[in-house]
Amino acid sequence: MAKAIYEGLKFRYKTTVIHRLDPRVKMLLSIVLFALALLGFNFYQEIITFVLVAVPATLAKSLKRLMRVVALSITFGVFVVAINLLAGGTVVESIVLAVRFLEIVASTSLFFVTTSPDELEYVLRWFRMPRDFVFAFATSIRFVPVLLMDLTQIIDAQKSRGLELDRGGPIKRIRNLVPVLIPLIVNSLVRSGELAEAMESRGYGAVKKPTSMDVLRLKINDWAALSLIIPGGALLIWLYIYVI
């Protein structure tokens, strides 16, 4: 399931209007959609938010992938409904809460499916985050596919030795993970050590303020998007709170 969610969230380069936007604009769009999802308290608001997420997702040719992530998150949505019902909420309220959760997932996913790890790194640097933190964060995201590949190979290798991950009760199933997790952790540690050595060998940390090849600059399409997102977002938030 984790792999399926990752596949849904993985960045894939496409030449769409949304993909070409400055990462800061994409982040702002996601934040606005996230806020609208959070502020939604009735079905009308949820439907509007859903449409607002679906439009950029369609423009980014990523609606299908986003819907896949949402579909995978439905289990958690059901959990939200159940907890809310137990806590004394009505059926309608519980469903609205679950839909709100799914929209939060979708709005966040929209940013990740359209923003490359490199762009994410630029955004964090623009926010003046410490360089080591930015590097560690961006590297960890870049290494997710490698880890997943390792995981698949380790599972295959252990299955070939007769390990049946889906067999037995809950305790046995947890114990079954040991032959998978130990090689995964050991390999990751070895790889991180190798990466640190490779980075140092390439001058990482040699100067306090290294120069940057890429600098974020807003272009016309970014300004156009901002002129839609900022007033539109503000208006919708006001409508959500006071009118609809």
Partner: peptide, 17 residues
């Protein structure tokens, strides 16, 4: 099937724990 077809993977570190 693995009991009949013994598969030795390329990367030893993926198997040892």
């Amino acid at each position: 099937l693995s009991k009949q077809i013994g598969l030795v993977f390329q990367n030893s570190d993926h198997q040892l724990f």
